[in-house]
């Protein structure tokens, strides 16, 4: 299959240093669900939300997938197109992608297989009031 240059963000590379909201530094591969929850609690602008994977379909390009999420209590339907190796953080499980082998190959980031029903960490903007 054609392999276009990967333009994924660099911070998914194993060993990348991530700063939590309280200033603590952690490697991307060491992040836990609690790190996201606690960072969002501190944040004045962002709140954590859960996004459940409802569908995974082929995207328009060979290496892309369309993932449909049901977001938050209102179950807002959101569809995103990402490369198959794009990792999402699943509550209680950790990094997961549609093609974990490719994620591991490209980023050296251990991943589980992202499946329908998985609940991913996502963010929404807090209401200003």
């Amino acid at each position: 299959s054609p392999s276009s240059p990967v333009a994924l963000p660099p911070f998914f590379m194993r060993g990348s240093i991530i700063q939590l909201a309280d200033g603590e530094l952690k490697r991307v591969e060491d992040l836990k669900t609690e790190d996201f929850i606690q960072s969002a609690e501190i944040s004045s602008e962002l709140k954590i939300d859960s996004s459940t994977v409802e569908r995974i379909d082929c995207g328009q390009s060979p290496n892309a997938v369309l993932i449909q999420f049901s977001v938050g209590e209102l179950k807002a339907q959101v569809c995103v197109e990402v490369l198959v190796e794009y990792p999402f953080f699943v509550f209680g499980q950790g990094w997961s992608s549609c093609c974990p082998d490719r994620t591991t190959q490209l980023f050296e980031l251990s991943c589980a297989k992202l499946c329908v029903g998985d609940v991913c960490v996502s963010l929404t903007l807090r209401s200003l009031r």
Binding site: F11, I18, V28, S43, D49, S51, L125, S127
Partner: peptide, 25 residues
């Protein structure tokens, strides 16, 4: 092996997709 003098640090929220931003009055 050359140790980099400065290592980029990324904010935690970079790793999380923003989905369905909410705006309410």
């Amino acid at each position: 092996n050359v140790e980099p003098r400065s290592v980029p640090v990324f904010p935690w929220h970079s790793l999380v997709p923003f989905l369905a931003p909410t705006q309410s009055d």
